[in-house]
Amino acid sequence: MSLEQFKNRNVGTQNYKKLDLEHSPTCGWCQFKQVVSRTFKPELFVGLWVTLREMGNALFRGKMHTTQYPFEKLPISPRYRAIHDMLRLLESGHYRCIGCGLCEKICISNCISMDTRYDENQRKEVSEYTINFGRCIFCGYCAEVCPELAIVHGPRYETASEQRASFSLFEDMLTPIDKLNLQQEYDGFGAISSNADENIKKTPLAY
């Protein structure tokens, strides 16, 4: 479609077409007549027939269109931003989060907080991590800034719960260790680009 007509902002020369509308009825009788003539048209019965036909299809010929939510769910795009997942390293099963605090810093609604400490293996341990989903606006900044692809948005969009504490702790978001083989690599907001390898400069290793 040409954009010509949108770019022409000279209202005076545009071709407006005036619709030929009936006048609205003014007296009571005229209004009654209009209602009756609009209600009882053959289209009503066409509509009823379609409903009946589809019901027949669904009941007797197995052509059901309804998604049985919550037993069935529609697939969603990887870019959908729902409740966060915390991913693990596939090889070791250790959580990916290194405790850098960048998500905590960037979070626009200031709803992430974390406690870290020096652990027995001389590493930074994330001793506690929480997101206050009462405040999270699902902007995706945390997933985008995370250098380890540790915090990502998962597909879990049902945010109704008796308590919001039910899904705001580290363990709740972390891939269960026995489901590690089912962990999906994240493809959405903040994921590495498909040509990432080409963009990396290698460090010289002369020895």
Binding site: G99, C100, G101, E104, K105, T116, R117, Y118, K124, E125
Partner: peptide, 9 residues
């Protein structure tokens, strides 16, 4: 202090 806080926090 090791690993307990980021400077900016």
């Amino acid at each position: 202090f090791v690993y307990t806080s980021n400077a900016w926090d």
